[in-house]
Nucleic acid binder design. Structure first.
Lengths: 162, 162, 162, 162
DNA sequence: TATGAATGAGCCTTCATTCAT
DNA sequence: CATGAATGAAGGCTCATTCAT
C-alpha cells in the first residue's frame, strides 16, 4: 500500500478514501483492467464473422494487450492465481451472465464446430497456451511476432475444434 | 519458516544449517519436487514407443501427480510464476542439458511430427492447457476423469502436431 | 470525530468551527451533560426538606438518570477517569463556586449531621457506591429496582452520617 | 506496545513471544497484579478474627497497596472500567470459585451481620468508596493518613452492616 | 550441531486535524 | 461558514533471520 500511495503521489491514508481495504483495491483494479480489456475486444469485433474469426480476433486482441503492458499482465496473472481469482470465477459461474468469451464458445458448440467438453476445459485448452505464450514473450524466452502469434492462435483453435 | 520448522520438528534456527535462506529452501524444495516428478515420468517410460505415445505418457503422469497432491501443485504453480521460476528457466536454457521434456520435443521435431516453433511456444501449447486443466480440477470447476484427461492430452497433441 | 460529524449531519471539518479540538468537544459535551443532570436535580428539589431528604433526592435523580441512558453514563464515567476529569475537579476546587452537591454536604456538616471528613472523602463515601451500583445494573450484574435503590441510598447515608 | 517494549528494554516483536496479543498482555498483567494483591491480603489475614476485623484487614491492605503504587492503581481502575473487566467479572460469577472477598461477604451474610443485598451491591457499597478514596488521595485531593483510612473503612462497614 | 529467544523493518489500517474551494 | 479530500504519525502485529548458549 505504501508503494501504491507513493506512485500515486498521495499519502498512505488517502487510498482508504477510495478503497475500503487492500483487497478492495485489488478487486477494483482487476475489475477496471478486465473492463478495459473487454472494451478493446468489443472494438472491431467481427460480429458477422465465423466462430473461428471471432476466436482469432479475441485471442489477438488479448495477447496484444497483454504483451503491450507487462506490468498489467503480471497483475492479471497473479490475480487469477490468487484465492480471489478463484472466488471471482466461482461467482461468475453462478450468475448466468455469459461474458463475451463464454459467448463465443457457446456459439461454437451450437454450431458443432468445437469439441463437446466442459467449458473450463475449453477455456484451458484455448487460453492456457495464450497466457503462457504471452508470459514467455514478456520474459524474453522468445519473441512473439505477428506470424508466431498467428500460428499460436491456430494451434489453440486446433486444440478445441472438432 | 516457523511453520516449516515446526512441521519438521526442529527449531527455527536449524533450517539455516541446511538452507542459506528462505529462498534457498524454496529453490531446494522445488528441485526436489521436480526430481521426484521426473522420476515418476521415467518409470514405465515407453522408450520404444512413438513420439505421440511418449507425449501421452508424460502428460498423463504429470497431470496424475499434480491432481493427486494439490498442495504440491500449488507450490509448483507459484514457483513457476515467481521471479525464481523465471530465473531457473533461464539457467536451464543456458546449460545444454536437455531435460526429458525437451528431449521428447526434440525427437518430435526431428521426425517432423510437430510444428517448427520455438521450444517455449511448444511448451506453452502442450503444457499450458494441462496445467490449467489440473488447476480447474483441483478448484472443483469440473472433474477430470480418465476419459476427459485423454481428450485433453489429445487436444494438446493436436495443438503441437503438424 | 468522523462519527460525531456524521451523526450531527455535518462535514468532518465543521466540528472545528465550534470546538477547537477533540478535547474541547469532549469537555464541552461533559459540561452540557452535567448541566442537564443538575437541572434535573433542581426540579422538585426539596428546598425545605431535611438534609437526609435532600441527599435522597439528589441520589435518586442522579442514579435514575444514569441508568436511563447507559451511553451517557459510560461517557461520564470515562470522563471522570480521564486526566481531564481530574483537571476539571481541580479547577472547580479553586473557584469557590459551590455546586449543588457540595452545598448539601456543607449544610449537613453545618448541622453536625454528617461526619467531619474531607469533602472529597465524603463524596467518595456517598457517590462511589452509587456510581458502582449504577454501573453494575447497566452491565446486568443485578437489577436495581426502586426498593434496592432506596436501600443503596440509605446505606450511603449511613456511611456519611454521624 | 511500542512503549511497553521500550520500557522492557526489548524490541517490539519480543512481546509476542510472551503474550499472544495486546489483549493477552493486558489480561496477563491484570491477573498477575490481582494475584500479588490477594497474596498480600492473605498474609497476616485474621483467620480467627471477626467478620468486621476481616473486612478491616482486607480494606486496609488493598488501599495501602493501591496508594503505594499509583501506576498500578490506574491500571487496575482502567481494567475494571473496560469491556475486559466486565467480561472477567461475568466469567468469575459463572465458575463457583469464591474469591477471598466474596468469602468474607458470605461469612458476614451467614452470621446475619451484613445486609441481605445482591452481592454486586454489597461490593459496590464496600469497595466503591475505597476505590474513590484511593483515587482522590493519589490525585492529591486530600491526604489519606492512617486515621482517615480507618474512618473510611468504618464508614464502609456502616454501609453494609445491618 | 541444535536451539529458540530476540530482533526490527515492514505490513495494513485508523483518525484527528488542516485547508483549498 | 461549510465542505470533504488529503494528510501522516501512530497503532498492533508478523516473520525471516541472527547468535549466544
Amino acid at each position: 500500500m505504501a508503494m501504491v500511495a507513493e506512485r500515486a503521489g498521495v499519502a498512505a491514508g488517502t487510498i482508504y478514501r477510495y478503497f475500503e481495504s487492500k483487497d478492495a483495491l485489488i478487486m477494483g483494479t482487476y475489475a477496471d483492467l478486465e473492463g478495459r480489456l473487454l472494451k478493446k475486444v468489443k472494438e472491431d469485433f467481427p460480429e458477422q464473422g465465423t466462430v473461428r474469426e471471432k476466436f482469432h480476433h479475441l485471442a489477438r486482441v488479448l495477447v496484444t494487450q497483454w504483451i503491450s503492458s507487462p506490468v498489467q499482465f503480471r497483475f492479471l496473472e497473479q490475480f487469477h492465481n490468487s484465492p480471489y481469482g478463484a472466488a471471482r470465477r466461482r461467482e461468475k459461474m453462478l450468475d448466468g451472465n455469459k461474458d463475451i468469451c463464454a459467448g463465443i464458445f457457446a456459439e461454437g458448440l451450437e454450431q458443432k464446430l468445437i469439441k463437446e467438453l466442459p467449458l473450463p476445459m475449453l477455456f484451458a485448452l484455448f487460453f492456457g497456451p495464450l497466457v503462457y505464450v504471452s508470459r514467455d514473450h514478456i520474459l524474453g524466452f522468445f519473441t512473439l511476432d505477428g506470424a508466431l502469434l498467428n500460428q499460436a492462435i491456430d494451434s489453440c483453435w486446433s486444440a478445441v475444434k472438432r
